[in-house]
Structure formats: structure tokens, C-alpha cells
């Protein structure tokens, strides 16, 4: 038996619904239809009152999630695509994220964002929004890269008393499989060393972890040993694990699928440069998507985002610095 990243997300939601009567799922087409990606498949059958179809009203969807949380509920919101969280942006960053600071009342809402690129999805169904939400105080931002993390982190997101932006990668939905669901989990806020190595640290998250691991595998045949750090949670950022890895390797490449300006890779490099400058043997490097809207055609798309090929090139350049 094997389970995909998408099935893990479905199973986590099934468990959350079964374990806690305060949990409900609200989003577009999540009910009988089972969600655009089938992440809520059959959940409405099992929990008919707690898996609810919403109108196409992202602002009202998030606003009502906040209200229900004030009443002690623990909503899981499915944004059909991360890209469509922008009409709900105001309620996320100005309302959910400020609620605890203003009132001392918790705001336990989980907002699932099907994120990242799949070929052919174009400018409005491919975005990665983690950096923009991480910018705002009052939000936890998770970016699971493995089937096990997709499951355990989603359960943890539901249990956390604060708003969690859960960035699940659409490319991993079907491609990534595990033998079984985990029974133990690393806590949120801790990064994982996905592969140990002595020569270069690649800090990555979400789908880019797998591109980095592929490069590490490839370059190890040439004797280049890459350490891959999977951030898991980008806010809070596990600076300690990053710094410890850079202390071992002396070289840092940070890879993100989102756009270059500001963002996660810039933040990681800023922290390493300010707090661990003396650990570096070479200028820290980063690789992001190109600074254009995400293109539709596979020829363009493959060049737009970082891939194992461009990451390998960046690692070789970094080793020459």
C-alpha cells in the first residue's frame, strides 16, 4: 500500500474531523464534489454537516472562518488555488493575523493553499504565496515537502491556536508517495536535514526540496556532497538549523519557487549574512523563479522556475567562488 501527498492531506482532514467536533471544512466545491483536487473526497459523506460548500467569496470565506473561531470552532479553509487567496487577503492579514494581538483571543484557523506550479496552469493557477503571508505578523506559514509532513503538519496546523497558512504543493499531490502515514512527527518550526553533506548547504522548501535532493544525488557521483535543509515551516524560520548547516559546509544556496524580490530566499540569506557571516567561505547564493508572471507553455514554464538542472549549475558556480 502507498499513499500520495494528496491522500495524506485528505486523511489528515478526515482524522481532524473525526477527532474534534469543533473542526469543519469550508471552501468552494469541497462538499459532495470533493474539492477541485479531491482533497476532501468523500468527507462530506462521512461528515455531512461539517464539510460545507462556499460561494465564490474568498473574503467572506476567511471572514466567517475568523468568526467561527471566535465561537470556538476550528475551521479548515480550502482556497481552491493559492492564487485565489488574494481576494481573501484583507481578512487574512488584517483580521485573522491581528486578532490575537488586539484581543488576546486565539484565532485557530487553517487556510490550505494549493500552491506552486504544474505545467500548463499559467499565471493564475500556479502561484506560491508563502513569502507574502510570512511578511505579516500573526501568521504561521507551513510548506510541507513530504507525504509524512503533509499529514502531520496539517494536523498540527489544526491544533495550533493561531492562523496557519498551509502551503501544499500541487506538483507533489500525485508525484509523491509514501508507504504509510506517520505516527510520529517533528514539530512545526523545526527544519529537517533531508540529506547530510559537507560541501554545500542547499536550503529549500516544498517542491524545491525534491529538486535539491535530485541534484545532491547527481553531484555525489562527482564527489560533491550537498546538505539539503528542508525548512518545513517558513514562519517561524528555523535559523538555528540553517546556521548549523552553514557552519558545517561554509557555502549556502537557497532555492525557492516563488519570485525573487524579498521572500524566503532573501530572508534566509539576510539572516545568515547578518548572524553567520564568518561561517561563510563564499558569498551566499539564491535561486528563484524569474521575475515575470508564471508562463503557460511547458518550454517557458520549465525555464521560469528553478529545476534540478539550474540548481546543479548554481551549485557548481558556488563551489568555484
Amino acid at each position: 500500500m502507498s499513499i500520495t501527498y494528496l491522500e495524506a492531506i485528505r486523511e489528515a482532514q478526515a482524522k481532524a474531523l473525526a477527532d474534534d467536533p469543533r473542526v469543519f471544512i469550508y471552501g468552494q466545491d469541497v462538499g459532495a464534489f470533493g474539492g477541485a483536487f479531491k482533497a476532501t473526497k468523500n468527507l462530506a459523506l462521512e461528515f455531512p454537516d461539517r464539510v460545507i460548500d462556499a460561494p465564490i467569496s474568498e473574503d467572506a470565506i476567511i471572514g466567517s472562518a475568523i468568526g467561527s473561531a471566535l465561537e470556538g470552532m476550528r475551521p479548515i479553509i480550502e482556497m481552491q488555488f493559492a492564487d485565489f487567496s488574494t481576494p481573501g487577503f484583507n481578512q487574512i492579514v488584517n483580521h485573522a493575523a491581528t486578532l490575537f494581538w488586539r484581543t488576546q483571543l486565539p484565532c485557530p484557523i487553517t487556510i490550505r493553499l494549493p500552491s506552486g506550479g504544474t505545467s500548463g496552469s499559467g499565471a493564475f493557477h500556479s502561484q506560491s504565496m508563502e513569502a507574502i503571508y510570512a511578511h505579516y505578523p500573526g501568521l504561521v506559514v507551513m510548506t510541507p515537502a513530504t507525504v509524512e509532513d503533509a499529514y502531520s503538519m496539517l494536523l498540527e496546523a489544526v491544533a495550533i491556536d493561531d492562523p496557519v497558512i498551509f502551503c501544499e504543493h500541487k506538483y507533489l499531490y500525485y508525484h509523491l508517495k509514501a508507504e504509510k502515514l506517520p505516527t510520529e512527527a517533528m514539530p512545526a518550526g523545526k527544519a529537517r536535514i533531508s540529506r547530510a553533506g559537507r560541501d554545500v548547504t542547499i536550503v529549500a522548501y516544498s517542491a524545491m526540496v525534491h529538486e535539491a535532493l535530485a541534484v545532491a544525488e547527481e553531484l555525489s557521483t562527482e564527489g560533491i556532497e550537498i546538505e539539503v535543509v528542508d525548512l518545513r515551516t517558513i514562519k517561524p524560520l528555523d535559523t538555528d538549523t540553517i546556521m548549523a548547516s552553514v557552519a558545517r559546509t561554509g557555502r549556502l544556496l537557497c532555492v525557492g519557487e516563488s519570485w525573487p524580490w524579498g521572500g524566503v530566499t532573501a530572508e534566509v540569506i539576510a539572516r545568515v549574512a547578518t548572524e553567520g557571516f564568518n561561517l561563510l567561505d563564499a558569498p551566499p547564493q539564491r535561486l528563484n523563479a524569474k521575475d515575470t508572471p508564471i508562463p503557460f507553455h511547458p518550454n517557458l514554464w520549465l525555464m521560469h522556475r528553478p529545476t534540478a538542472r539550474s540548481i546543479a549549475m548554481a551549485v557548481r558556480n558556488l563551489l568555484r567562488l
Partner: peptide
């Protein structure tokens, strides 16, 4: 919509 959510809750 926040009040809506409280009423839904």
C-alpha cells in the same frame, strides 16, 4: 462575514 462566521459557529 466575521459576524456570519460567529452565527455559523
Amino acid at each position: 462575514s466575521v459576524v456570519n462566521g460567529m452565527l455559523i459557529g
